[in-house]
């Protein structure tokens, strides 16, 4: 099979992936003129583009994005690192696994948004409840994936470490964590994705800054274009975050590439 054929094929795939969004955009833009929906309710894409340009120009959008991203980063770091540590601890100690895993699993059954009223009662409306809210979201994928990764390190590798007298820190950093890393990284990706989703949620519950706040404000002022700009920006940033992590992942796990995988 020739290289050019594969390239051609991928190119065609990309084109196919664009067709439906393009059709939707056209439909969206023509919804107003065709009198399907009022333009007051569904801002057409071109108008939206202008609104976005204005928002960027006035610095309002950037400021809100930065505030939201800050919350995401802090919430993610807190939630993911505690998930990481707990995942490692449970992965290493069967005793702690038996004691803690059922608890973590049952608490996980509480829907994320059900935490918010409690968090607001406990911590009022400052930054803290939002950060905790995001951290809770970031925690679960990290704890489960880390745990799974660690307990999935093959017995063979443990034996090898044992043969070469790897203990404690060296054992953890040279064998266990590298062995669990693919799974840990899946955890990081899901965790960051959820953090980004939950920041907007957190900001819907009373706030004076951030992308979520911008959207609430837009709704209250009946500025639908503002609400929709928020949606576009949230989607775009989520996409970029995921994209960056995918690139890092590819670099990090180049060792997984086998002869078969190396063709494309």
């Amino acid at each position: 099979m020739s290289k050019s054929f594969i390239k051609h094929f991928q190119w065609k795939d990309k084109l196919l992936a664009l067709i439906v969004p393009l059709l939707l955009l056209i439909l969206w833009q023509s919804a107003g003129p065709l009198q399907l929906v009022s333009e007051l309710i569904l801002t057409p894409p071109l108008t939206l583009f202008h609104t976005l340009a204005d928002l960027v120009g006035s610095g309002e959008l950037t400021d809100n994005i930065i505030v939201s991203l800050q919350r995401v980063v802090i919430g993610f770091l807190v939630g993911a690192s505690s998930g990481f540590i707990l995942g490692i601890v449970m992965g290493l100690s069967p005793f702690l696994k038996r004691t803690l895993l059922p608890l973590v699993k049952s608490v996980q059954q509480v829907p994320e948004y059900a935490w918010m009223p409690l968090l607001i009662i406990l911590f009022s409306v400052g930054e803290l409840p939002k950060i905790i809210f995001i951290a809770i979201g970031a925690f679960y994928p990290m704890v489960f994936n880390t745990f799974q990764g660690i307990s999935g390190v093959p017995k063979n590798y443990h034996e090898l470490a044992n043969v070469y007298n790897y203990k404690n820190y060296r054992y953890l950093t040279k064998v266990i964590i590298p062995g669990a890393l693919p799974s840990i990284f899946t955890g990081i990706r899901l965790s960051l994705g959820l953090s980004w989703m939950f920041v907007v949620g957190a900001e819907l519950f009373g706030c004076d800054s951030g992308i979520g706040y911008m959207m609430i404000w837009g709704r209250q002022m009946f500025q639908i274009d503002l609400v929709m700009s928020g949606l576009v920006v949230i989607g775009a940033i989520g996409f970029v975050l995921n994209f960056i992590l995918e690139i890092i992942e590819k670099r990090l796990f180049s060792w997984r590439r086998s002869f078969e995988g190396g063709i494309a």
Partner: peptide, 9 residues
């Protein structure tokens, strides 16, 4: 089985 660690060169 050769048991090389796949993440090491």
């Amino acid at each position: 089985d050769h048991r090389l660690l796949p993440w090491l060169t």
